[in-house]
């Protein structure tokens, strides 16, 4: 029964997408109350951030009355391609996935297009020469996150004309978040001469990396005013080093970090981090909204940014109980 219904819904989707291709439509029943079927392929469960992302999508699907077929790719592109093919065979209404890697998606995306199933990308983009193989990409704007960090810093140090020495803990070299967060931050602080990045090294997005690199920064630079870390874990590691050097994190060195994990909010409530720029994994509601629009054949923008906030110390304690990741 369910299969017949989803087949009918798929037939409807076919008609909407107007890319007719052979496929047999079994007597179209009016599908007004049928739940939309969404096939979602997740990267894996490599971090708390990702787990929160998965939970949010499952929760939001339930609330929106969308039937979710969930598949975990365990970091393998091959698994993900298989999952998408099986979604196509099952004739789901909409396919969404967070690509494990950037390239190599042309074939399977064209297959989805041929079957008339709209595709939504989440969290990460793909590289493709094909046109119109996906409807939209819903994800964080890493450059904007860097800009937000920069803007806050500029405002915070608006009253001083002294030089502000910044050290930067970059993410894994070459990764999109590391490149973009560096770029956005540099763009904003570059407008003011007083800001200078005196050292910038990769801490590989890990706590131990952040700790070790910060320790080296502290031994080789005397007057560090600001630490800008591309993620919370590196900032948390760096705090250890700053304390070991006999300095007060958050007081002697202003600390800005990105992501918004629970541990960072705890540190911020303790006054050890000054600003956290959120990189929001809770995209479920926004995704379900998009799925409904795409399914109804409405036009959506090709790039949609996740709603993300900026948290200062004053808001940390209050926001802490609500943090889900």
């Amino acid at each position: 029964m369910k299969k017949a219904l989803s087949a009918a819904a798929a037939a409807l989707a076919l008609a909407v997408a107007a890319t007719a291709c052979g496929g047999g439509g079994e007597g179209a029943q009016s599908g007004g109350d049928d739940p939309i079927v969404l096939g979602f392929s997740q990267v894996g469960a490599e971090s708390g951030w990702r787990t929160a992302n998965t939970e949010s999508i499952k929760q939001a699907a339930k609330e929106a009355g969308i039937e979710l077929k969930f598949s975990d790719a365990q970091q393998q592109q091959q698994n993900q391609i298989q999952a998408i093919r099986s979604f196509i065979q099952q004739n789901v209404d909409v396919i969404a996935f967070s690509p494990v890697v950037e390239s190599g998606w042309d074939t399977v995306l064209l297959e989805a297009k041929a079957a008339g199933i709209p595709v939504v990308l989440t969290d990460r983009a793909v590289e493709t020469d094909q046109k119109d193989v996906y409807e939209t990409f819903l994800g964080s704007d890493f450059v904007e996150e860097g800009r937000k960090a920069g803007r806050w810093l500029v405002e915070e140090y608006a009253d001083t004309d002294d030089q502000v020495n910044i050290v930067e803990l970059q993410g894994t070299t070459g990764s999109a978040p590391a490149n973009d967060r560096k770029e956005g931050f540099a763009e904003i602080i570059g407008e003011h001469d007083k800001f200078e990045v005196v050292a910038s090294q990769s801490g590989d997005f890990t706590r131990s990396g952040g700790q070790e690199v910060m320790q080296a920064f502290l031994s080789s630079h005397d007057d560090i005013d600001v630490l800008y870390a591309h993620n919370d874990d590196m900032a948390l590691g760096a705090i250890e080093s700053i304390e070991a050097a006999g300095l007060e994190p958050g007081e002697d060195i202003t600390i800005i970090s990105i992501d918004g994990i629970k541990d960072a909010f705890r540190a911020m409530a303790d006054g050890k981090i000054n600003l956290v720029v959120e990189c929001n994994p809770l995209i479920g509601p926004q995704l379900m909204d998009l799925v409904e629009k795409v399914h109804a054949g409405e036009e959506v923008k090709p790039r949609i940014t996740v709603e993300e906030g900026v948290f200062t110390q004053d808001e940390a304690a209050e926001a802490l109980p609500d943090r889900k990741y």
Binding site: E212, Q215, A216, S219, S220, D222, A244, A245, G246
Partner: peptide, 20 residues
């Protein structure tokens, strides 16, 4: 880095690049 060889005591613990 001129301070590379410097070893001091901070918080009751040796401190410096060599110790790191």
């Amino acid at each position: 880095t001129p301070r590379f060889l410097e070893i001091t005591v901070r918080g009751g613990r040796l401190y410096g690049s060599l110790v790191d």
